[in-house]
Design a protein around this nucleic acid. Sequence first.
DNA 1: TTGAAAGCGCTAACAA
DNA 2: TTGTTAGCGCTTTCAA
Lengths: 342, 342
Amino acid sequence: MTDTRVTVREVARAAGVSVATVSRVINHNGRFSAQTEARVRDAIERLHYQPNQLARGLRQQRAEAVGVIVPNISNEFFSRMIVTLQAGLFAAGLSIVIYNTNHDPDMERQCHASLAAQRVSGIVSANSLEDVRVAVRRDVPTLYIDREVPEGGLGPNVSSVMSDNVASGRLAAQELARCGCARPMVLTATAGFPVTEVRTRSFAQELARLGVSLDEKRVIHPPATDFPSGHDAVTAALDAGLDFDGVFAQTDRLAMGALEALRERGVRVPQDVAVVGHDDILLARFSRPPLTTIAQDPERIGSLAAQIMLQMVAGELEQGRHELVPVRLVRRESTMRGQNVA
Amino acid sequence: MTDTRVTVREVARAAGVSVATVSRVINHNGRFSAQTEARVRDAIERLHYQPNQLARGLRQQRAEAVGVIVPNISNEFFSRMIVTLQAGLFAAGLSIVIYNTNHDPDMERQCHASLAAQRVSGIVSANSLEDVRVAVRRDVPTLYIDREVPEGGLGPNVSSVMSDNVASGRLAAQELARCGCARPMVLTATAGFPVTEVRTRSFAQELARLGVSLDEKRVIHPPATDFPSGHDAVTAALDAGLDFDGVFAQTDRLAMGALEALRERGVRVPQDVAVVGHDDILLARFSRPPLTTIAQDPERIGSLAAQIMLQMVAGELEQGRHELVPVRLVRRESTMRGQNVA
DNA sequence: TTGAAAGCGCTAACAA
DNA sequence: TTGTTAGCGCTTTCAA
């Protein structure tokens, strides 16, 4: 069993060298003879020595850990992303410290304070509300997930990884157009959410290119992005007599709420209304009907994030990296109309 | 902006006191006049002082952090549990460091080594394969989730929290019996998984009490607990001509795979076969037909875990606490036969 | 190639 | 009530 008590001192004594030499061997620093190294490694092995990360961190002025801030880790997108992020960082000896903010700005401030106090080597911030300008003043490498970040002038300590949201909007537009939709509706997030606004814009643009116009009154901002919000928004739209024959819902949960509302009112999907979701969560293939959706790749995002974070921590980046991860359309029954069931 | 550079020294100087006094005020330790306290707090405020957790941890011989080891955080049960666990610990100033092991014993060893090196204050281990006897020798408080732990004699540093698995088995048995099932089948985990074995045993016992017997040949151990395993196991059972009229699947994913296999073969649920799942994941209400299942309460488990961990860390426990969290039957269409659609 | 020693920022024992 | 100081375990000059 790893004995918590052993220190460099013990190892040094056991190996018959100084603590400095032990440290050199551990960190591959400076020079030492092969013989010395062997003796030290042997002592480490025998004593089950575990370098104290607290002491090392104090000395180096930073912990071998990265902070991860997400709205809610039980969101499938984030939890899947974190799996690969964690694996990638762990392989390089970095641990991850996780916080959920539930989009609460105050909680977010507390998390950042806690991470500062822990002197983490970097911060991965997903979909945070925090002001980027504030972050830039910090000197700790920060990587934003799913977040529009001004590319230039932020220096080497700010990077970002996100899905190709322009492609998302475009693919959704193409799919609904292919279904022959003439009056498409959008269920998006609360107004002002950059990522979803990009998608909506791109959606409208591509529709226009295809000769379909997106009417402002059919762009709906539900209070949240969950199932009930989708359900209620569509129910309200039907009640208000809003006329639509296609839906682009910016989360699958919104889409599934929409499907339920439509079914309740006897509106047929895809015959009367075609529906495209976004994310491709596990649920999507089980909805009634199974949901066509724009799949994100959270695993890819996580491993890319790990890679970039490691580069930033190592000081290898002259400039922040800003990466777009491809999305793809997953066609299921909710858009299977005659013309595209090839 | 939190300035990373400020130390107790600066604060002490600014407040016109010694570093010891600053430390006392911060930690509510020892005595100090109200006036001194005010001056110190003021200085802390003005300088945006953030105590260095690395230094504090080194001095105290332990970090203000708890390690969390799970098979895979993208498993809904764990991610939901972690949300409340994290919140509960954060409120007490503890961060959580997370690892995924994917049930790999070697990875698990590495994680424990890493946590030891970080001198975490405690470890929450979910469904781990690690030997408890090994853990007992460690002096760090360890809390097992979903894990049978011998209650006595482990001392104050080992606790456990899990669902009431005996109740799970009983409820499933009652539900299938109520459906009139005479030849129930069980889809469980790989043999030797303690938690699921408890459920199976309790299931069989309650069935017996109700006059139904569980035939060994209808207890099936699929290779994994996911959708394909459930699908393949049921398909194989049908192919083998196994006769059954009810299924207790020990995860909802297994259950959903079973539903799909049954549908493919034209077996009607619930008319021909009634199905009960376990966990109540988000998906369960969307299956075809919607799945009756035994709901676990991961949020409750997480917050209880936080509470117990805090007690252990504070040294308030004479004995480890071993808590059972209630489960409940959520009845949906997969068991709605005439006799119990009340 | 190796060792001695300073010091990272903090807390706590001891003195005053 | 407050201050002085040792030392947690490590890395890294500086000297040898």
